[in-house]
Every structure is written in structure tokens, then in C-alpha cells.
Design a protein around this nucleic acid. Structure first.
Lengths: 316, 316
DNA sequence: TCGCCGCGATAGGCCCTGTCTATGCCCATA
DNA sequence: TATGGGCATAGACAGGGCCTATCGCGGCGA
């Protein structure tokens, strides 16, 4: 059975006339005769009573025609819906973001994204790197903003911008008087995040500490960490986008001597079909952050720049 | 767009695997690859993200698949419904019957019809000959039981049985003492039905009277006519099937000298597709009435016997 | 690290079938 | 009886669906 034949059926039922229905369908009259006859043979039911004055639907046809109408209408709905789905910069876009980035980046880029792509419904999803990668691989996410280079050939990525690390000190800290802080000087009393946060590993590495170390504190969020520093429990490294809230908390921020940084990337499945959406999101984020970091953001060098000059893009 | 392609789409979405879906659909895997690709081109939307471990429906596919399911389900419903409509001895059967026949014939044949064809939903419709013929021609009726021969080549008919006329007399009538009544003897005080009833013309013709005559009374129903006769207002001719109610009303019934009768036929549109249903209904009615009339019923002589030996089948 | 395996895509050929034009048949009408 | 409208039929052609065979690619185990 064919949708085309069902459309023929509807046209004939509507016009009560093979010839007029054929014209309405844009085919010749014999075409309708043949096709309807085949449909009747398939169904085992006579659909029209042909007479001298056109064709009249039979009782059986009347009973079937409701289903026919619905089937054809749904087929049209498929075409219609597909048309609206055709724009890759429209529809749902599930974007994963790591917790040390989301609260500080999202307020900066959400409005520009909305303005540039009003039809793209971005659904942010905040979780740690490993969960986001798993979410990508099981199609729960369309893309993710990470600060590490993803593994495996099934994922592609583009570097968006470099985000410098800053030393975060209590105002009364002995290092607070310096203009720049040496990375190793923080090692003695550094506080870090809980396992799973990429920032934990990166901060420790920058200070030359082993991953296993880092003191007894395992802060579950950057906000907690900042509050601990503000309360004088120690120092930490924060990504530059978090500097606003840090200063609000009364923390002293200082640039690092070797200007360590992390590279923020957008990551997606290599086979994800809406590549345009990914690239547009990445482009707009990079644009908004351009000039933010000293090293600047490149923004569109897919599969390049796996390690920047600062070497902070440690794999997790 | 093709229903087959939509079934392919559903199979792939269900199995998450082109090969398994192909097997389920009974086609080869390349067939699905090609057809889905064409469907994607038609819709302008990527439906599946092909990966190393099968195929995953895209977001767009998820949005479309509801419509696809409905369309395919409706197509199946068409096939399913058609299967149940395939039996010509099932479904609605609108049967017109003239008023001088319906009240007396229906009680006799309804049970046998039901027993023989339990799936045939016979909807009786009582009206005068002209209305029934019009109803047939505008497809409001499927068949009709008439006592006249229909005109025009668009209608076919079969003679079912001959129904003798009987003289109906008040008990105190001067002719009541005779065993048989001469048709012309009724002419003096005969009462007849209103215009439009074929029995009116037939009764007048049998008595040798012009159609224009027949006295001032125009009874609107045979029951009224019988009550008028019973009350002594005159005589009339009744069809034999009405003899029971007539006798119940205290009327004297007598056979006619020339055994005038009318022929009951089943009439249908020559192009009506459910010929079997018509023939079965006619056969069962004839069977039930077999031996009822002295002359007997033939029951299946289509387009023959347009005039019986009694010559009572006057055209209207 | 190499080769195998699973999965989807591609190529080429066959056959079905949908469509056309031309024509026939039937019926209604003038 | 002739004519015209309406659907069915016939024959031919083209497009498309399906097949088998093969390729390309990525994953995985030896």
C-alpha cells in the first residue's frame, strides 16, 4: 500500500470523478483507474461504484476513509515537521558544561547565543568531565564545554579560549603583598576541589604537586573553595572567569609567574549531524571571550592545539 | 514519501541497527541504507547517527517518529478494516421496502435473514416505490423490495415471489357469501390507498377501473384501509401477506376468479458491488415465501418474468 | 601493531511498476 | 441514431526499488 494511492483515493472521494481527481493530483485519468483498481484488489474491497455520472464511494470506502485521512494527514505532518527541523541552528541543543566553568561562563554567553540563534534552544547541563563525556557518547548531550582534551577518535573538539589561572589568597596571607605569585609557592597550603573536577588535577599539577596530595579538604564546588580561602584556611588556584565572585568574597587575586592557564574546548561526537550548531555555539563563545585571556582565543582550530604553550591541558 | 520507508525508519529506530532492521523487514541491508538516505534527503533532515555500534536516532528523528508511528498504524488499520469489510455478506445493508409489504413480510423473513447472515446488518427503510427508487439511485439504499418492475438500465432486479390479491369484504357484504369474487364485481364500492402506493394502481387496474377513479377515500396505509372495510365502508383488494391482520379485524377474505397477483422483486443498482448480498437476501426471502402463492415463486430469474401470467405487474 | 570482524555505504544490474498516450466500451442525452 | 462524457484497457517506456558483491572504516583481540 502506498501513500500516493491513498491520496488518489481521497481525491476521487472528494471530487466524485476520476478525471477531475486526476487533474487535481497532476496525473492522467488512466493512472487513477489503474492504481485504484490495484488498491481495491489489495484491500479486497470495492472502493467506488463507477457510474455514468462519476464515481460514488461505497459503504466500505466510507468506513475506511477516516483512517485514510489520518494516515495522509500524518504523512503531511511528517513533511511539515521535517521542514521546521531542517535548520541546524534550531531545536534543542543539549550542552554540557563543567562546574568550574558553568556559573561564570554561562552568564557571559547566554544572551549572545540567544541573540545570534534565537531558534536554538540551548539546554545547559552541569556535570563533571567524565559524566559529560559519557553523556556525549550515549547521545544524552549534543556537545560539551570542557577544560581537558577528550580522548578517543569518536569525539571531535575545537579550542575556544585560554583561561589563565590566578592565585587566590586570603588578604592577610604572607604572599598577598607580591604582585605575581610563583606557582610552587602555593604548594604549601593549597586547597583543592574534590575528585572528578578537572580543576583539581590541573591546580595540583601547576603547583608541581602529585594528584594524590592536596591536603585533607575536598571542596565540592568552587564557591565552597573560595569561601574557605576567604576564611583564611589556605590558598588556591582559580580560573580567571571566577575572579569576580572571588573578589566579592574579599579574596586577593594575583597573576602567576608562569601564567599557567587551561584551555576551554567545545567537544562533540565526530558523527553528530548538526555540526553547524556546534560550530556556531563555539564561535560565539570564543568571540565573547576574545581578548579575555592574555594569550587570546583561537576559536576554530579543530583537532589542533592539543597542548598550548602553558601546557595546562592535562588529560584526565 | 512512502509508507514502506516509514516502516524501515521505525524498524531501524527500534533495533538501533540497520542489519537487524533489514532482517526484520525482510529486505537486504543495502536496501535500508539507500531508502533511509533518500528519505533523509527528502526530509532534509538526518534521521540516524551512524556509528561503529549501530545507528542512533537523532533528535529530529525523535520528533518525527510519533507521526511516523501514527501514519503506519493508520495504514495497518486500513488493511485490518478492509479485511473485515471483505465479506460481502457482512456490514450495513440498507433495504427499502414498500409500505404495503414491509409490515407483513419483515416479520416472516427477518429471523431467517439474521440466521443465514448474522454479520449482515439489514437496515429496513419503509417508503413508497418512487422514493425507494430515488434512494437507490442516490446510493441511500443498497436494494429495495418492490411490487413493480423498475425502469431504466441502471437498475437490475430479480423476481422473488408472486403475491395473490384477495378480495376483502365486510362480513355483511352482499358478495361475502360467494367462494370466489369476480375482479369486476369489486369495482362498484372499492376503497383504495393514497397516491404513490403501487397497490393503489394495481387494485384499480385489476378491477378494470381507471387510475383517476377509486372513490373519495385515499387511505394512507393498508391498516387504515382494512379498518375502513371492517367498518363496512366498502371493499378492497389486499395482498395475501396481509390476510392475517385482515382476518383479525373481522374482514371476510375471498380468492379472486382470475387469481390476480403482484410480483415482489428485489431491485438494486446494476453497478452495486455487493451483488452477493443482494442475491443472498433475495434467495432467502424467496425461500421463506416458497409455496406461499398458488403460482409459486421462482426466486432467481433476473431480468426475466417481467410480466407474469396474471399480468398484474403494472408499471408505475 | 597487525589482521580480523562487524557495520554501514556504494556500485552495478535486473525487474517491477507507475505513468503516459491511444483507444475501447458503456451510457446518457439531444 | 449520433454524439459526447466517463471510466477501463492496452502497450510502451522510464524510473526506482531491490538484489549481490564489494568497499571503507572503526574496534578489538592476538
Amino acid at each position: 500500500m502506498n501513500l500516493r494511492d491513498l491520496r488518489y483515493l481521497l481525491a476521487i472521494a472528494e471530487h466524485g470523478h476520476f478525471g477531475q481527481a486526476a487533474e487535481a493530483c497532476g496525473v492522467s485519468q488512466p493512472t487513477l483507474s489503474v492504481q485504484v483498481r490495484k488498491l481495491e484488489a489489495l484491500l479486497g474491497v470495492t472502493l467506488f461504484e463507477r457510474g455514468g455520472r462519476g464515481a460514488v464511494p461505497t459503504d466500505a470506502c466510507q468506513r475506511l476513509i477516516g483512517h485514510v485521512r489520518v494516515a495522509v494527514a500524518e504523512a503531511d505532518a511528517i513533511l511539515q515537521t521535517a521542514r521546521s527541523l531542517r535548520d541546524p541552528l534550531a531545536g534543542r541543543f543539549r550542552l554540557g558544561i563543567i562546574p568550574t566553568l558553568a556559573p561564570y561562563l554561562l552568564p557571559l554567553v547566554f544572551a549572545p547565543l540567544r541573540e545570534a540563534m534565537p531558534a536554538l534552544e540551548i539546554e545547559p547541563w552541569e556535570d563533571q568531565t567524565a559524566s559529560l563525556l559519557a553523556g556525549l557518547r550515549e547521545h544524552a548531550l549534543d556537545a560539551a564545554l570542557l577544560a581537558t582534551e577528550p580522548d578517543g577518535p569518536d569525539l571531535d573538539h575545537t579550542c575556544l579560549f585560554d583561561e589563565p589561572f590566578l592565585a587566590a589568597l586570603p588578604p592577610e596571607h604572607r604572599l598577598a603583598c607580591r604582585d605575581r605569585i610563583g606557582e610552587e609557592d602555593l604548594a604549601s597550603d593549597i586547597l583543592v576541589l574534590a575528585d572528578g573536577h578537572c580543576l583539581r588535577e590541573q591546580a595540583l599539577a601547576v603547583c608541581g604537586l602529585s594528584t594524590a596530595l592536596g591536603g585533607p579538604l575536598r571542596a565540592s564546588s568552587l564557591a565552597t573553595l573560595l569561601n574557605m580561602v576567604a576564611a583564611g584556611y589556605g590558598t588556591t588556584l582559580i580560573p580567571a572567569l571566577a575572579s569576580g565572585p572571588a573578589e566579592d568574597a574579599g579574596i586577593v587575586l594575583r597573576p602567576l609567574v608562569r601564567e599557567a592557564s587551561r584551555t576551554v574546548r567545545i567537544v562533540w561526537r565526530a558523527r553528530f549531524p548538526r555540526r553547524e550548531a556546534v560550530e556556531a555555539v563555539g564561535r560565539i563563545v570564543a568571540q565573547r571571550l576574545r581578548g579575555f585571556a592574555a594569550s587570546g582565543a583561537t576559536g576554530s582550530s579543530t583537532k589542533t592545539g592539543s597542548s598550548t604553550k602553558t601546557g595546562s591541558s592535562t588529560k584526565m
